[in-house]
Structures are given as C-alpha cells and as structure tokens.
C-alpha cells in the first residue's frame, strides 16, 4: 500500500486539516491523566513526551459511561428516545499499535450475534492513525503476543518516527483514501523506508519483558482448579478494578437508569469482574471470593476469549502492571502457572 512521509513541523497543519472532517483526538495531559482529548491546535509536543496514554483510547468508542436512551411519560404512557451519538466522524491520532489491536478484539465481541448499536455507530465512524512506539515502557510485553511497537493490525494509517519526519503507511483502504486526499504529503524514498525499518527494529528490541504464551489456553486449563495457586496469586489484589477499567481489551459493562428533573435515561457504564457485586445474585454469588475473580480476569484474557475467538485478549500494553496500586503483575502470574 501507499507509503508517504510528512515533516514533524507540518503535523499541526495536518491535524488542522483533518479537523475539518473529523473530531480529531490526540494524546494530552490536560486533565492530569494522559488520555486522548480533542485537538486544540498548535501543540504537537506530545509526539516527544508521549509513550502511551493512561486511559485507553477505547474510551472514544466504549465510553466509561454513555446515555443509551431517554424516557418520558405522558397520558399515553412511556415514550423512549434513542440518544443521539455525541460525536460524528472521529480520528484518533497517535493511538499505539497495542491499543488499535485491542479495538479489533472488542469489535469481535460487539459485532457477534446481536450487533451492539452504540459501540458500532462510534466504531464505524472512527479512523485510527497510529504512531509506532519508539520508547516502550519496561512493563510492555506486546512482542510476546505476536505483536510489537510497529504492529499495524487494526490501524488505518501507521506513522513511524524517522527523526524530523514521519513515514506514513496506509494499512486499510480508508487509510489510503485519507492519505491521498491529505495535503503536504511527500512520497517516501527507499532511504526513508529503510530508516523506518531501522526505527522499528530498535523499538522492537526495546521491549524486553517476556511472557511465555505457548500452549496458553491448555496450560491455564490445567491450572484452573488449582485453588491454592490462585489464592496465592490473588492475595495482594485489593479488588479496586483499576486494571480492568484501564485495560484496552476489557469491555464488561452495566446498565442502569438515572432519573433527574423529570427526565429519565438508561445508561451503560463500564463494570469490572474484579468487583464482588459484579456477579452477585440475591442468594448466590458464583465469584464471591477474590481468587475466583482474579482467576476469571486472567483466564478470560488467556483462556476463554482465545477459545471463542482464537486470539489472546491481552495486547501486552502493560497498563495493568504500571497502574495497579499494589503492583500486581500479570506477567508474573503468567510466568508462574504451575506445571510449566
């Protein structure tokens, strides 16, 4: 597919240009927490400081909370009104390869069987422009999951940093069209592409954390009933749910109603399998104990999801390791499954 390049100092102009068609999201720390927020113009310094966002970009497609529909009542009874989408076409600029891959994993769930109206209407209106990582974290382990800092899966366009310029590669047809229409692009030379390759190789080598995922579903299956192991693994977890809320591949949600000032609405909000009430029924709770919940989280990613959809539902982004308040580390769990 098409390969072009653009100078870094041209970037602000390009984002301005794209803003005419899309709401463009870029990495920012405006709120104190690195996340994707609306492009404000001018400041492209994120290109230098940004390693990955704390909040995963899934937020732009599966928000922490969203209104599904509102309801009102008159003499004829209830009237429901589907809530309009809060954004039109959007472009996420600077999404990391792992997070784009994660969206591809969510797509499978929200598309299968009954299509999820709310997820799909955002997803189909979203263009993903990735920047390959040059400075991965120590906690990243994407390369163990047949991915890496230059993986293009799930992206429409992929940018590779070659110093003062980015090499831009179209991954999908939608990406190619966007690239063809964009101003200020120059063809990438063979030399540029060689530098891009070199940049990718260096980044790949910088990912040093390793997990052994060979025969993963079966190995986990063998340890599934090893309660002692799971109790040990889960001991320090405080069930805060941060790992799941920040995980780009977690998608569990809850549905609740809110009524205020004569207006009622049904909302969807993210939920977490780390919470005891998540599965609680009036009499029984199948995952009452913490070790059962930790086991479910690990096994959903590395055993159940792969059984259903043939891919491990973890991208190795390392968020759950970096951001856990008690330093719970999934790689240590995966590397210590009994019987390996």
């Amino acid at each position: 597919m098409t390969v072009k390049k653009i100078a870094k100092k041209e970037l602000a102009r390009l984002l301005d240009e794209w803003s005419r068609q899309f709401s463009v999201l870029v990495p920012s720390v405006e709120t104190g927490v690195a996340q994707m927020t609306g492009w404000q113009g001018e400041d492209t310094s994120f290109v230098d400081w940004y390693r990955n966002t704390i909040l995963p970009p899934k937020d732009a497609i599966l928000p922490v909370m969203e209104e599904m529909f509102s309801f009102s009542k008159n003499e004829d009874g209830y009237r429901l009104e589907m809530s309009p989408p809060d954004s039109g076409r959007q472009l996420i600029f600077g999404i990391r390869p792992c997070d784009a891959r994660a969206l591809a994993m969510l797509d499978v769930v929200f598309k299968q069987d009954y299509e999820d109206t709310y997820y799909m209407r955002r997803r189909l209106n979203t263009v993903l422009v990735g920047i390959g990582c040059t400075n991965p974290y120590d906690s990243c382990f994407c390369t163990s999951l047949s991915s890496g800092p230059s993986d293009t899966a799930g992206l429409d366009l992929m940018l590779t940093d070659i110093g003062d310029e980015f090499v831009i590669e179209a991954v999908t047809e939608a990406g190619r069209e966007l690239l063809d229409k964009s101003q200020g692009m120059r063809p990438a030379t063979a030399d540029d592409e060689a530098r891009a390759r070199e940049s990718r190789d260096i980044a790949n080598q910088r990912v040093t954390q390793n997990v052994d995922v060979k025969k993963m579903p079966d190995r986990l299956l063998a340890a599934f009933d090893n309660e002692e192991y799971w109790r040990k693994i889960a001991a320090k977890c405080i069930s805060c749910g941060i790992c799941t809320l920040l995980c780009p591949t977690c998608y569990c949600f809850d549905i609740n109603d809110e009524v205020s000032d004569n207006r009622g609405a049904r909302y969807r909000s993210l939920d977490s399998c780390a919470f005891c009430i998540y599965t609680k029924m009036p009499v029984e709770n199948p995952r009452e104990e913490k070790w059962q919940r930790v086991r479910n989280r690990v096994c959903h990613k590395y055993e159940f999801y792969p059984r259903l959809f043939d891919t491990i539902a973890c991208t190795g982004c390392g968020r759950c390791i970096r951001l856990c308040p008690v330093n719970w580390d999934i790689t240590r769990t995966l590397n210590s499954i009994p019987g390996q």
Partner: peptide, 24 residues
C-alpha cells in the same frame, strides 16, 4: 442455570462460566 444477566446477549460479560455465556 441462573446468573446475574444484564445484557442478555453475550456482551456485558457477567454471566460466564468459563467460556460459556449462560445468557447466550
């Protein structure tokens, strides 16, 4: 089987028993 089922369509995640989704 009984589970706390929210979405009913295999998406919200909470009704699983391993890779089985009770709602679906």
């Amino acid at each position: 089987l009984e589970k706390r089922m929210k979405c009913g369509i295999g998406k919200c995640g909470r009704c699983n028993i391993g890779d089985i989704y009770v709602c679906r």
